[in-house]
Write a protein that binds this DNA or RNA. Structure first.
Lengths: 389, 389
DNA sequence: AGTATTAGTACGAGTCTTGAACTAAGTCAA
DNA sequence: TTGACTTAGTTCAAGACTCGTACTAATACT
């Protein structure tokens, strides 16, 4: 077996068409078999066969027949899969989050725990074990678990190569989780910005977008880059480390030990220096305090202008390279976003070659602090929609 | 039919496995049916059936049986497809090129024509018509024709949106070509750097690489970004315009009308300013003259050091974003590359966050001035390898 | 000369989808 | 009220494809 590809047989046909029908139900909601046939292009007979199978598997139920005008009333098929769960986890400096989604994408559980400094992998593993045990005791089947971590994540090897803010290095997190969780679930780990981008792609601002760039804003700044709904990973999975592009103020030192990193000019600390304020709580709380002050304090607004300039320049760099349809600002950028976006918009229009030909939307994330855990849960469910289960 | 995907049936299975076998033959050269079965994971019986079909279609021939040690000697199957042709075209400021590849990737025709300033789309169309007519008169079947153009190419619409160096704007090149070429060929157009990157991915330095970045070096600078062998296109197909990242010397004006573009600091003209020399012929000839002078002139070497610094900084930016396994310098960078690469290497090692974890290879393209036309020809053939024909 | 090994083909069973035919369940018009 | 029409859903047989097994083919080895 070489890397020219994988052989195909008729069982792949069934798997592919099953996944197609699941995706169609996910996208369009309850549908009759006849609707599904029209939408997917499959024969009515095929749809009927596959729905029968999904019914047996408990992934769909049939609703009451509904009058539809002339002709026999159709019986809508509803994607439930209430018992089929994907679990997303996120660990960050001062909190851990978990989100459990069922097959239709509904949240079955959302939970956040504060963390003291010095979080260990064992904290996340224990959290995950307790939570998944509860779900399983309730009769759920967990098909996948994905953990989101802020840092360089070698997804293929299942190792957190480096997460400076957590003081983690070379942590085999996937295997630590897999050893303690039920054998049936597919366990994976990913970078937190990548996961948040996935959430935007499935239920946020990037739904339907061919190409999207998501920027996390905390002390550190990272990006998740979506290409046709898939994360751009790079040669070793380390794509998206935009915070360390050497395009920031060359006089400013970065937490990574270099000077001139973009992150050192646009991260939370740089913003606070620019507006002349101090931290007050979490990054989001701090940003809200800054937004409040900006309403009456011109020097704070000046500081935010300066931040927007650095931010806009980096986004122009990224836009020339990636040509994203949409740029989404997340994290601490959201509460102060109204002071940033107009200026970013101007810079992008001025400095991106393709700007006259394509309008790049720039917006603020609406997904809140559970974005990464939600995207991780979507990723944990992706095995079903890809037809692997 | 919606965008949840396309339905599958058993005819797709055959197509997929046929393409798999074609790709395996392309990658591994002449192989027995038993070898192909081992490599692809398909059953011997299936391989035999598919090869029989390809034999009938004239895509393969059987070679002499060869002794192989114990057991029955195998009869190698050779991918010929001599009569199946993909044509790649390139138009640039002072030349047009064409490359015709057969199904096994062998060059069947390579041709270059000088161009006077003011090239029109009609020049390329006439060139293409004459050339494809010749191929067809020789009994060849052209499955695809792809034209590479330096500029912003809207591939989906088949329009060259903007090619400043050619003074083209909104040229419907795909349709102009399709109207004059045989109806059987699939016609497409693409950006020249994207095409050159494809050539590197199929027969150059990026073969087998999960992620590659190719930089063209002429007056303009652009990039082709490969992700798993596919070009990264972005929301409207304009990804890769790295020359206009605003990370160059802010005092220097760029041909695009802005200041501070990377291209204005690393393009041919910037290099000549830095080394204090004048153009002498084509960009490649000029670069060769610079390389010769650099051997004994320290000020030229200083100028090249300065160029390498700008280049290295931009490559560090790109590497933090994209995490390429390999960076390939093409065009005028090649003759002077030995003066550039060591310093680029140092900058990348110093400024890329993932550098301690992944070695990014930096090398010079070996494909010469036909890189873009060759990549375009590979792209023209891709319909076969994807199983569409 | 017989055995072992590897290449390649023939054959029947299994999976999957499809279109046509049919049944089911309504609306509409005479 | 009845029959025609329309749309939903199921049944059935045919077609496409792959597979494993059994077999034939063609060598090397003992």
């Amino acid at each position: 077996m070489n890397n020219a590809g994988i052989p195909a047989a008729t069982d792949q046909v069934r798997r592919q068409n099953t996944a197609l029908i699941l995706r169609s139900l996910r996208m369009n909601g309850p549908s009759t078999r006849a609707d599904l046939a029209k939408r997917t292009g499959l024969a009515k007979a095929t749809v009927g066969t596959i729905i029968g199978q999904l019914d047996l598997a408990g992934a769909v139920v049939e609703d009451q027949a509904q009058a539809s005008g002339r002709g026999r009333p159709g019986r809508p098929v509803v994607l439930t899969g209430e018992r089929t769960i994907g679990v997303g986890l996120e660990i960050n400096v001062d909190y851990m989050s978990a989100v459990a989604l069922d097959l239709s994408g509904r949240e079955r559980l959302v939970e956040t725990r504060p963390l003291a400094a010095g979080a260990t992998p064992e904290d996340l593993v224990s959290f995950a074990v307790a939570l998944t045990q509860r779900l399983e005791d309730d009769g759920h089947t967990i098909v996948g678990v994905t953990a989101a971590v802020p840092g360089l994540v070698d997804r293929a090897a299942g190792i957190v190569s480096s997460a400076p803010n957590l003081h983690w290095s070379q942590v085999p997190l996937r295997d630590l989780l897999a050893a303690r969780l039920s054998p049936g679930a597919v366990v994976s780990i990913d970078n937190d910005a990548n996961c948040a981008a996935l959430a935007e792609g499935s239920r946020g601002a990037a739904v339907g977008s061919p190409s999207a760039l998501y920027l996390t804003g905390t002390v550190g700044v990272g990006a998740g880059i979506l290409v046709e709904g898939q994360v751009l990973r790079g040669g070793s999975g380390f794509a998206g480390e935009v915070g360390h592009m050497p395009i920031g103020d060359p006089r400013v030192a970065c937490g990574c030990g270099r000077s001139g990193c973009w992150e050192a000019s646009i991260g939370l600390r740089a913003m606070l220096t620019a507006v002349g304020m101090a931290e007050s709580g979490t990054p989001l709380e701090t940003a809200r305090a800054v937004a409040d002050r900006a309403q009456d304090d011109a020097s704070v607004r000046d500081g935010l202008d300066s931040l927007a300039n650095w931010l806009g320049n980096g986004i122009a760099v990224l836009s020339n390279i990636l040509n994203p349809s949409i740029v989404i600002l997340g994290g601490y950028f959201v509460p102060i976003g109204t002071y940033l976006v107009p200026q970013i918009r101007e810079i992008v229009d001025a400095k991106v070659l393709a700007a006259p030909l394509q309008e790049t939307e720039i917006c603020l994330s609406g997904l809140g602090i559970h974005a990464a855990a939600t995207g991780a849960a979507e990723e944990a469910l992706s095995v079903v929609y890809a037809g692997a289960i």
